[in-house]
Nucleic acid binder design. Sequence first.
DNA 1: TTCTATTTTCTAACACTGTTCGACAAAATC
DNA 2: GATTTTGTCGAACAGTGTTAGAAAATAGAA
Lengths: 204, 204
Amino acid sequence: MGIKQRREREKQEVRQGILTAAREIARQEGWQSVTIRKVAERIEYSPPTIYEYFESKEDILVELLREGFRQMAAALKAVWKVTEDPEQRLLNMAEAYWNFAMSNPELYQVMNGLGGVSFDCLEKPPAARESFVTTQEALVGWAQARGVDIPDIEGAVEIIRSLVHGLISLSMVDRIHGGEPRAKELIHRAMCDMFAAWSTRQEE
Amino acid sequence: MGIKQRREREKQEVRQGILTAAREIARQEGWQSVTIRKVAERIEYSPPTIYEYFESKEDILVELLREGFRQMAAALKAVWKVTEDPEQRLLNMAEAYWNFAMSNPELYQVMNGLGGVSFDCLEKPPAARESFVTTQEALVGWAQARGVDIPDIEGAVEIIRSLVHGLISLSMVDRIHGGEPRAKELIHRAMCDMFAAWSTRQEE
DNA sequence: TTCTATTTTCTAACACTGTTCGACAAAATC
DNA sequence: GATTTTGTCGAACAGTGTTAGAAAATAGAA
């Protein structure tokens, strides 16, 4: 009776193959040239077969979006235990965010509607909220260690995220003078600036 | 001999009509559904006629990109004279940047590769550099008035720009908790945080 | 094994996209 | 009025996402 399970396993493999193929093409040639027919050719099936595994092309992108947010959340959690210093931890998280985007640009693009990708309905997967919460916890830890009070912590997290995302997305369209090494340096500097600002808050 | 000039004027009007039509469709239905045939129908010409005025569809987008950067640069310069206070001036510029993006989302998208737009070659028009320089001059003025030294001013400008752009682009895909009013508020707060950080630089 | 029944896969097509070619008409020049 | 230049369009090409129905492969029962 294990024949049914084998079949199920094979189906999952084909499904994963579609996702992988789409990612590879996007990475090599950009999302613009990710085509159902090209994906089909790469997995050695005919185009209609893809619709047995995904409702539409957009469905493939949505699945990769979820995958991206899962990996991102995992990457942020992974650097948590690297250090005990709350400030260094936040710096590491910003760097991890950057590293993820630069190592998986095709995922980052599909996650944030960059690189010619666009959804009718940009959904926010649970993992996205996870990343946010992880960052927030790190920031709370920092504030406690520093003995400062950050009113509206959620806002502070959004500011950090916007800053890093802004540098990444501008870097991706080559709009940062000095290229990627410079952008990475600027993230570090901006984070330190924010630390400085929030440390002196009680004096305002 | 004014007949040739009239003809030239009419051609410019048709050309402008194409640009306007593309913009309007993008604003109403998104760049995804901007189609040569739809643009043609709106200006009451046949599709091939468009190619008498633009080499390709991408050429239309590039022209709108340039137009966008020109308007942006003008908007930044326009708020320069609103106040003499250097800090308020920078706040006004950040708000003007935000206002421009929210008033002309279709232009902002085409300027930064958002909303499903993507170019083979993202060019940086002269007006883009202009905006950068204007912001830089405002920041230099602020530093002088405050009596602080900002090493690597260009980097500081890129940080400001990334922050504002990050908030805008996340806001456009509805990823800022609290929506647009909240995002606008966060820009103001982040700017003030940056002022605080750079004011206390000499103490580090 | 052989014969249904079911599931999986593909061929062919549809409506749409950006773009081009060659014919046609209008206008300008002589 | 005849001719050349200019402007415009119908039809078509190759490519896109997607679907319907036929063909093939596999499953279970005789």
